[in-house]
């Protein structure tokens, strides 16, 4: 059973530890600005929402990549960007309807969550268990997938 990230906004305090862990794992420096996971603030609701790629089955980014730079990690299901192959054309950044693959101007490459090979740093560091790595069925990311399906350009698929 593949696992996926489950975010529980009601538990998030907005402390940035996930962003710090992510940036250190990927950029070798504490640098929330370069984290693959981002916390969005909803001051009116007093909510913080950790947000990153759900590794959707549709994989808009992967399909849109013109140079085969995004591939699936068969073990985790993560869609992974090869920095070597990425030319920085940014097509994936507008193709992904979730906005979770982003261009980094200083490196000229796109970056996204790769689930850290199956041991996500954000999950390990979160002090409030607002980010979990659990069996995909249990994540309730069915809702995300539902939204993913809604963005599919094929509005209906009827097998013959």
């Amino acid at each position: 059973m593949q696992k996926s990230l489950l975010m529980i906004p009601s538990k998030c305090t907005g402390c940035s530890q996930c962003e710090l862990a992510c940036s250190y794992a990927k950029e070798e420096a504490f640098n929330a600005a370069k984290s693959r996971i981002k916390i969005f603030d909803f001051p009116e609701k007093s909510r913080h929402v950790p947000y990153t790629c759900t590794q959707c089955a549709e994989a808009w980014c992967m399909k849109a990549c013109p140079v085969d730079a995004i591939s699936e990690d068969k073990k985790t299901g993560a869609k992974i960007v090869s920095a070597e192959l990425c030319v920085g054309c940014k097509v994936c950044t507008i193709a992904c309807p979730f906005g979770t693959i982003n261009y980094q101007q200083d490196t000229g490459k796109v970056v996204k969550c790769d689930l850290c090979g199956g041991d996500p740093e954000c999950v390990k560091i979160c002090p409030t268990e607002a980010i979990l790595y659990v069996n995909a069925d249990a994540t309730g990311d069915a809702r995300m997938r539902e939204w993913a399906a809604k963005s599919d350009e094929a509005s209906d698929v009827t097998p013959n």
């Binding site: 305090t13 907005g14 402390c15 940035s16 530890q17 710090l20 002090p127 409030t128």
Partner: peptide, 9 residues
């Protein structure tokens, strides 16, 4: 709510 990097909140 938390300040930056704070697990106490």
């Amino acid at each position: 709510a938390a300040c930056f990097g704070c697990p106490i909140s």
